[in-house]
């Protein structure tokens, strides 16, 4: 199996405090990998390193065998690393459609066009509408993003990520803070992404049943280190993981 993403001794410290310590992982193309671990384990930080928001203190990151460790976030997105944020991060005073269109536009490589034909603009919009439909948000297209409910903002976040059509998707707790009714819909969406089998997905989640159903591989981060990795079953059985979570209540479904 071909690996698309690799980290080598990836380490980051904040003022002497080690947040991630020598993480070595290899992510297979078109596989679904989940990352679990208690709050503060460094999961979001790991994503920040992969997407370039943070630079590691030590270690390297390879994407498709290219060393991307020193690349800026925008350059990594253009290479094919797309991410969504745990804390909703959209363009609040633009409409929902404009938010997604910006992602479509970035993907299409349309940058410094001032006199862009109306017809082509319409095509971008149509494309954006497709993604909005996929995220079940098309009825809100003309709403300013700031007026969306929390759950809707999460959907918008995902629509924007999808619109980038990157080969690698980093999803940071996409269901965090969502109401219970909204979760299944996001799950379905993620499942459908998986079923298309043309994307490599990394998911940070707490909901164990979700992880079990979706994941090909699970990584466990615990106290700054990679505690274990394996199939969901292997992880459930892993004694280290069990004891780390004090009798396994973390892993309860």
């Amino acid at each position: 199996m071909e690996s698309i993403l690799k980290t080598q001794n990836l380490t980051i410290t904040f003022g002497g405090h080690i947040v991630l310590k020598e993480i070595n992982v290899s992510i297979q193309r078109n596989r679904f990998t989940s990352i679990i671990g208690p709050n503060g384990a460094g999961k979001t930080t790991f994503f920040n390193l992969l997407s370039g928001q943070l630079k590691p203190t030590q270690g390297r990151i390879f994407f498709r065998d290219q060393d991307v460790t020193q690349l800026s976030p925008d350059a990594r997105t253009r290479l094919g690393i797309g991410r969504s944020f745990q804390i909703t991060d959209v363009f609040p005073h633009l409409t929902v459609l404009e938010n997604v269109r910006l992602a479509v536009q970035a993907r299409a490589g349309i940058h410094f066009h001032v006199f862009y034909p109306k017809q082509k603009m319409k095509e971008l919009e149509d494309k954006a509408m497709e993604w909005l439909k996929k995220a079940l948000l098309e009825h809100k297209k003309n709403e300013l993003a700031t007026y969306l409910t929390h759950g809707e903002k999460r959907k918008l976040e995902i629509a924007m990520l999808l619109a980038l059509e990157t080969e690698l998707l980093l999803l940071d707790e996409p269901t965090a803070g969502m109401s219970l009714e909204e979760v299944p819909m996001i799950l379905e969406l993620i499942q459908s992404l998986k079923d298309e089998q043309n994307r490599t997905i990394l998911l940070i989640e707490h909901k164990m049943d979700m992880i079990r159903n979706l994941s090909d591989q699970v990584l466990v981060l615990y106290q700054s280190e990679l505690l274990a990795q394996g199939t969901p079953e292997e992880i459930m059985q892993n004694e280290l993981v069990q004891s780390a979570y004090l009798g396994g209540d973390f892993l309860a479904p």
Partner: peptide
Amino acid sequence: ENERRALSLG
């Protein structure tokens, strides 16, 4: 609106 997000869109 959000410089960081604009960057992360590429």
